[in-house]
Design a protein around this nucleic acid. Structure first.
Length: 118
DNA sequence: CGTCTGACGCACG
DNA sequence: GCGTGCGCCAGAC
């Protein structure tokens, strides 16, 4: 532990990944919800940006379960063809129509509500 | 160090 | 109900 060692050096991005990883299969959440969960309400754009930075880590972080407030798959462009966001969601039993999650309210998973401490 | 962007969210018309 | 604009924060150039 040197002086340059910082406990929360991971930063905002990894914090987003951590919450996203907690999203149960077959469930979805919104960018704003995650932003608020990590203590930065209003930073919804940063959440999406963090997920965009995932890259190869998409396999470790279920970013496809994160949609916007409308339940729309705004970030589908970050997924490669053949494993599109919509396809991944359908595999979990989530109905997607016109790039939009059906029954979004019912499938919505609120990190703040489900996570005791963060 | 200033500027722009970005997978959003909300207020306003 | 829908379109437009602004604000949010953090990172890249």
């Amino acid at each position: 532990m040197t002086s340059k060692d910082k406990p929360k050096d991971q930063g905002f991005f990894d914090l987003v990944y951590e919450v996203a990883r907690l999203i149960p299969e077959g469930r979805v959440t919104s960018y704003g919800a995650i932003a608020a969960a990590i203590g930065s309400p209003g930073a919804a754009r940063m959440v999406g940006w963090a997920l965009n930075n995932l890259g190869p880590r998409l396999d470790d972080v279920p970013a496809h379960r994160v949609v916007n407030r409308n339940g729309m798959l705004t970030g589908k462009h970050a997924f490669r063809s053949g494993a599109s966001m919509e396809e991944l969601l359908r595999r979990e039993g989530i109905e997607v129509v016109d790039d939009k999650v059906q029954r979004f309210e019912m499938l919505f998973w609120d990190p703040i509500k489900e996570i005791p401490n963060l």
